[in-house]
Design a protein around this nucleic acid. Structure first.
Lengths: 255, 255
DNA sequence: GCCACTTTGTGCAAACGTTCACAAGGGCGT
DNA sequence: ACGCCCTTGTGAACGTTTGCACAAAGTGGC
């Protein structure tokens, strides 16, 4: 069990839940910086990010003590610290495989190519698409996966292909040396140990919404003919709510 | 506190974590059905979904006892039960606002329009796009938000607009009666209590990947000049790993 | 009808995540 | 220099989620 020596503060174990929120904080911090705000309190930052302020403070405390008591956090400084922790102070070359609607949307997505990430290439298997230009990149053939990865030292791959092609593309990416994959295809990818896969699934999110929507509107009638309305609000993770409810009945939810 | 009477089994409290996994199980079940598989064991289902089998059983047990001991689960029956629980036995009309690359990708996304969801309309603010056809729908103007929602009884809205337009669109959707929103714009939306918002953020996922990628490759040198390699594998939620590691060094991870 | 085998459903404990509440600490006015 | 006020950072309590391990329950062979 190789323990790292004390190099200052605790870096070895940042909770996964915290990591998932850091990018959100980072975005809010960038927005503050653009507005010319120099310092923010945990309360303000938390409100803008839609989370509890205690949670935000605990999250930030995992990176070190970068705040000033009585004042708050220096925006620029915190931007740097969070970026560094996320590994965004270096540039990550990214390969996008699949130049359909989704691939194109990703290539054109502003926040994608801006801070920390750089699109190395956009690839597609369809000869009709190869050669066309997307977001300043000429689409290359799928046979270019290996050379492109080697040439640009790519370690992050994005799969935006149809479901059927995803596993094959994934295997080739991994064999070529990619160790991080963002998968938009609706399949569960099999990868060797040591490769990190994250999945974004449009329809799953929609189905979760449907569940809550149904929950809110279900009216049940029991054997007495009495009606039980289950229109209860279910507050879930990471969302802000502005006071003054327009929709729905009384909520037990947080203010 | 209105408690519902016992109508058979426990329906009032399905954990959020379980709900988030049900759509995944549902997809795997559909895949089984298409392959002609009549029954599956929790072990098989869990492997295909990339989760622990005990977790899968516990998840399914929240919906009721729909398995047969010694045999497994009847695929068709389970598909029905999960669909019902998620509220997918009814059709949900969905409005997509924003007909850019992402909006088009969503409209064309197969699993989107297929089971449980129906695209009621695609809207956009850009007059140049209005009138064009996307996935069989003529794009309507943003001024049609209210009439479209009223006409089709829409309760789910998808926001695929630029960040700047998202909050405004959101407010209009909510005012028109939409209570569930799937947001692709990189902003935190403010909504009244009783409205459910889920967010899908492409760049956040990428940043989380970057963090793990960095983690894997960081080499630190301490004051002794000794090198500490932190190339430890970090297994995260919901991913399967096939044995026979090609990439990375020895892992403490599960098989 | 009984036994052996398989697989579900669940009690329990540990791990993880969230929230409260407050002590520690820094800035600012006097 | 002192004391007040504000905000961070964190200990402790609480709730949720996970995973083990096993009893309960069904099937099929004999």
């Amino acid at each position: 069990m190789s323990r790292r020596p004390a190099t200052g503060h605790n870096t070895q174990g940042i909770p996964e839940a915290t990591i998932a929120r850091l990018p959100l904080y980072l975005r809010v911090l960038y927005a503050c910086a653009e507005q010319g705000i120099a310092t923010v309190s945990s309360e303000e930052l938390a409100a803008a990010a839609g989370v509890n302020s205690a949670k935000l403070r605990k999250d930030l405390s995992h990176l070190g003590s970068y705040g000033t008591r009585g004042v708050g956090y220096d925006v620029d400084y915190l931007v740097y610290q969070v970026s560094r922790e996320l590994g965004l102070t270096q540039d990550w070359p990214v390969v996008i495989v699949g130049a359909g609607n989704l691939g194109r949307a990703l290539a054109n997505y502003g926040g994608f190519a801006s801070r920390g990430f750089r699109i190395a290439a956009v690839l597609d298997a369809d000869p009709a698409v190869v050669g066309s230009e997307i977001a300043g990149h000429v689409v290359e053939g799928a046979d270019q996966i290996e050379p492109v990865i080697a040439r640009h030292q790519v370690s992050i791959g994005v799969i935006a292909t149809p479901a059927g092609a995803a596993q094959g593309v994934c295997d080739r990416l991994v064999a070529a040396g990619v160790t991080s994959i963002l998968n938009f295809a609706p399949v569960v990818l099999s990868v060797p140990v040591g490769v990190d896969v994250r999945k974004v699934d449009l329809s799953i999110e929609l189905q979760i919404l449907a569940f809550h929507a149904q929950r809110r509107s279900v009216v049940r009638v029991d054997q007495d003919g009495k009606r039980y309305y289950e229109g209860r609000v279910m507050p879930a993770d990471g969302r802000s709510a502005v006071a003054g409810g327009v929709v729905g009945e009384s909520a037990v939810a947080a203010p």
